[in-house]
Amino acid sequence: MAWTWFHRLASPPYVYSLAARLTPWFAWPAALLIVTGLYGGLVVAPPDYQQGEGYRILYVHVPSAWMSLMVYTTMAAAAGIGLVWRMKVAHAVAASCAALGATFTFCALVTGSLWGAPMWGTYWEWDPRLTFELVLLFQFLGYMGLRAAIEDVQRADRVSAVLAVVGVVNVPIIHYSVEWWNSLHQTASVMKLSKPSMPPEMLIPLLMTGLGFTLLFGALLLVRLRAEVLSRERAASWIREVVAGEAARA
């Protein structure tokens, strides 16, 4: 009995309508949190005593970096579920994650580089976090490339799922190796991002944008998942009913 909810998630029509119903529950809180968090971070929070106003890009950079890892983990978890239980919807979730994850990672890289320009005096520093994000971006691109190279959707699902699971085992190894690599070569120019104490008026907006980005990812994932399910099930009869119903309402 307890597993009914899990089994129902395997049904594309159910997931399609569930995703449609859940989207506003993610999208509106996300918008609210991001707008308030950005206001708190960009206007209310005091300037940093060392970095002045320049640190404020943190309110976009840090949540993007959080999301890049979280999306990768979500993708790998969904892919693993798809491999083990042969659940088509889980593969659709993994497929929808890839481009979102690549985008968040790209945002983290760009904002990190822009932040580096005034702080380090250069747009690119081989900082361990930035390097790690770059490698993560390559992993997302590799996943998308593998998926695009295989025409049969079911095989693409399962092959790319193996890649995602292998990648997620490797992520901590890459993380620590990059960290150690850098500590061996480091010149003294890099500032520490995580300060031991962050005053609450700086921290609270960061937590708000962080949660906001998480919910934003949820909302975007649900929208992309619906598109993915639509395109995969385009031959199924329930799609015609859904499309006809939506056309009648519009």
């Binding site: 490698v135 390559f138 992993q139 691109l141 590799g142 490339g145 593998l146 190279a149 890649l163 292998v166 990648g167 490797n170 190894i173 890459i174 190796s177 990059v178």
Partner: peptide
């Protein structure tokens, strides 16, 4: 494609 998949994993 093989290079794009394998090289990031080989970084450590």
């Amino acid at each position: 494609l093989l290079s794009i998949l394998t090289l990031p994993l080989a970084i450590p």
